[in-house]
Design a protein around this nucleic acid. Structure first.
Lengths: 195, 195, 195, 195
DNA sequence: CATGAATGAGGCTTCATTCAT
DNA sequence: CATGAATGAAGCCTCATTCAT
């Protein structure tokens, strides 16, 4: 079978992306050395360059991979014909599940120091995640289901609040479990709900 | 006067801290080169090592300097004998003023990639900022003035929400002005208020 | 037919030699990458190593191939029972035709940076080109048809003069055509002619 | 004295240029490794980059240094109010002296593989050497003192002839001494002399 | 005490070579 | 037998740190 090399190659690529995601997330763009990524991926340093033209290219691939997974986690099968609170809490749970299932991806996406290296395609992908949510929020707001605060502000506040939760947990300032996260979500809904 | 050398030294130190803060904030710990910091501070590279034993030492000094200024901005003269909402909105305004007056410091403190290098003294300082606020929050909560959600969660949510706001603005996803920030603060207060 | 595999192999070998000649000639021994040669030859990188044990081996094969062609261009059917000037101008024309027909080969042979890697067989071949010409020159000189200057000097001067012409043209300091090359050859003959 | 550091720096720079000249001349641009140059210069690898922005920058500095010395060797104090043959033989001797005094520089300048990396300033310098000689040659030719062959051709031939001599000697095909070089020069003059 | 030239370990990247398919 | 993915040594270059001035 001539298919095996292709499968091998894909597996190698996945291990590179996973290792890079973990190290970029742990130590930032400049703090993650390419040879260290290679070692963690269990490949030679040169192999990374058969898959990505440069470290910058690699961080873009990692970003797009993680962002695509986040988009799927947030939006796939999302049911929007529901009361606003229900939609909000569903999204909150989806965020939490993503943060649990893919902690490396969540940590990486929250990190900022790769941002200067993102290319146009990566930036476009960022909007592909935000735009549908903004669209939903605006529709709800026009239907009177959301507090009349500019949607861009509200999204930044909610996303920031959730990120703050996870970051505090990672730094050891608090611990999280499903029940506490749900309560935090309910409190956060007050931020969006019509007063 | 034997005082002049001491004053010179303090002035040099300030320029080093400011330059380091700016570069660490812009490019992260690993992305900021010591010679570049020296150049921005207008001193020789060796001079930095007369003030700090190492780059790690320097980043701790920068962290403590910024955190101390944040503590002052948040807590100095804070009047706690007021209705909870008033305290909250005051803190929110203080945060906003700090983010405007010292954007480098705010950006740096939000950065993650220096965290692994913080020493015990720096970590202790972090608590010195959080503890008084937690104390206030708990008192208000016991007085029935705050939503009965664990205070650690609430603080993480609110701090995260504010940080998310500033981060979104820095990334160009929204623009901020006093009025919009005030409205965001009011929405955020709903998160803390007794339902 | 069992001959086809052999013919295929020979064709592959020719493409490898041509590609290597071109790249070595353009960028020098160290500047030409084996994978780049393989790509230009339209073969896999591993294929080159089925034909040559190493890059050093390859450059020797290229050298011998080019030198053999030069020898043929200079000496095949050379008529030496003629007046010295006629022989000289014939050789000059042959050089010019070679430089036009096989510019890659000419450029490569003039290059110096592969010289340290030439093996004994390649060095021997070099002499196989020079020796017959030296033999002819000495015979003419003994017959009084050439200036009484050591033949080794005269050959170095003439070969160098021709090479200088081509090199200047390649660097854009002059342009060449048949007529100008012929005039240059006539001037160069004065170098060899009995004063 | 604050002058010593400047003198040290200049000395370091000279050693770098000399080492780079030798290695580029011996092994070509791609064959000379920067760490090897540093070792030969007796400095750390990083030091080279305090004097030159890149390897390309270094090869340009080496080129300009060598070319400037060649220009001085050829043209400084050249007396042109003399019979053409005398001028020619003087230049020939100057070339020979340069090739003896600065064999590394001569070998390097003859090498071609740095040419693609020369910048505009370096190319301009090349012309500064050629132009005065071309000017002299044209004047002589108009005065009837030189063979009526295009000056660009004649210069390429003579320069090439001399280079061929030195190259043959370096490759061991012949040996040179003052007397033999003088005889070669006399033969070469025939190339330029009015027939 | 400040300086900045020097250092060399380590980072990013290339490439000659191997080997499983 | 051809292939091309993988390798890791080695190349170019940066930068945290030192030290002579």
């Amino acid at each position: 079978m001539a298919q095996t090399p292709a499968r091998d190659r894909a597996r190698t690529e996945r291990r590179i992306l996973d290792a890079a995601l973990a190290l970029f997330g742990e130590r930032g763009y400049h703090g993650a050395a390419v040879p260290a990524i290679a070692q963690r991926a269990g490949v030679g340093a040169g192999t990374i360059y058969r898959h990505h033209a440069s470290k910058e290219d690699l961080v873009n691939a990692v970003f797009r991979d993680a962002k695509t997974r986040l988009r799927a986690a947030l939006l796939d099968g999302l049911e929007v014909q529901r009361p606003p609170a229900s939609i909000f809490l569903d999204l909150w749970q989806r965020l939490w599940r993503f943060a649990c299932d893919a902690p490396d991806a969540f940590a990486f996406l929250e990190l900022q120091d790769h941002v200067p290296y993102l290319d146009a395609k990566s930036r476009a992908l960022e909007l592909e995640v935000l735009a549908p949510i903004a669209h939903i929020a605006r529709a709800l707001q026009q239907g009177g289901g959301l507090r009349p605060v500019p949607v861009d502000l509200m999204m930044a506040l909610v996303w920031g609040a959730f990120a703050g939760l996870v970051k505090s947990a990672r730094m050891g300032y608090l611990t999280l479990d499903d029940e506490r996260v749900t309560r935090a979500g309910e409190a956060c809904w007050a931020l969006c709900a019509v007063p």
